[in-house]
């Protein structure tokens, strides 16, 4: 269980990024965090991983407050998650194979043959096995995300995957493929399912994958509900934000 209790954070010049945020989430949930650019969506993920500390409030992961933990104490908490950053955050000096097996090499005592097999298996699952010897700069945006997803899954067996703008900057077809992939990886039934939180400002992509939607506005949670609640919201700003969803549905 992930629980935010009255979490506030401000950056330079006391600019509030998050203000008194509270919510609970299970690891098996499929959640989309929506909001304008710079609205604190990514910061929420970083707080969850202990990469940033809040000014006040508590962040409980399985009942343990991570705010006061040291880097080494946070290690076990972080192993419950995997994250895919916006641009993939691949290691530039390593090729696709080495990027994917990076954490196998760190933690496992598998032989080189076994590691190679695992890398091919994962890349095959994501449909990019042919890119195994390419360097990150030779990959398209969509391929980078796929490699990043493969690496996220290779490290450990995460209970939840965090996707930071996983579809932004991609053409609609590639974004659609990534959404299908995210859905495929979250197959299974709760509570065993590996859930995810996707941070995005593209409502249409969020609808494709998520079951619960959290909308951030002015550093606060303005909406938290399921798809039907999102469709029927009376909030004018949220309605304008979800306009593209209504237009898409109208055409469909």
């Amino acid at each position: 269980m992930i629980e935010f209790q009255n979490v506030s954070l401000s950056f330079n010049n006391n600019h509030a990024v998050l203000n008194d945020i509270s919510f609970k989430a299970h690891f098996y949930e499929k959640i989309a965090i929506l909001g304008m650019s710079g609205g604190g969506k990514t910061t929420l993920l970083r707080l969850m991983l202990g990469l940033v500390r809040p000014d006040s409030g508590k962040i409980l992961i399985d009942g343990q407050d991570i705010v006061t933990l040291s880097e080494s104490e946070l290690r076990d908490i972080r192993m419950k998650f995997s994250i895919v950053f916006q641009e993939g955050a691949l290691f530039d000096s390593l090729n696709v194979r080495e990027n994917v097996v990076f954490f196998f090499r760190e933690y496992s005592s598998l032989s080189e043959e076994e590691i190679e097999k695992k890398a091919r298996e994962l890349l095959g699952k994501l449909g990019i096995e042919e890119a195994i010897d390419l360097m990150p700069e030779e990959l398209s945006g969509g391929m980078k995300r796929r490699v990043a997803i493969a690496r996220a899954l290779a490290g450990c067996n995460p209970r939840m995957v965090l996707y930071d703008e996983a579809t932004s900057g991609l053409d609609p077809l590639t974004a659609d493929n990534i959404c299908s992939l995210i859905n495929d990886l979250a197959k299974g039934e709760p509570p065993e399912r590996t859930g995810f939180i996707i941070v995005t400002h593209k409502v249409t992509d969020a609808i494709k994958v998520a079951e619960r939607f959290i909308y951030l506005r002015s550093a606060e949670i303005a909406f938290d509900g399921d798809i039907s609640a999102l469709r029927n919201t009376e909030d004018p700003e949220l309605r304008s934000f979800t306009e593209e969803l209504h237009i898409a549905e109208k055409y469909i």
Binding site: R46, S82, Q86, E87, E106
Partner: peptide, 14 residues
């Protein structure tokens, strides 16, 4: 800036 250090931290690498 490219979040590669964050990736290391998240995956438990010092």
């Amino acid at each position: 800036l490219g979040h590669q250090v964050d990736i290391l931290r998240v995956q438990g690498v010092d």
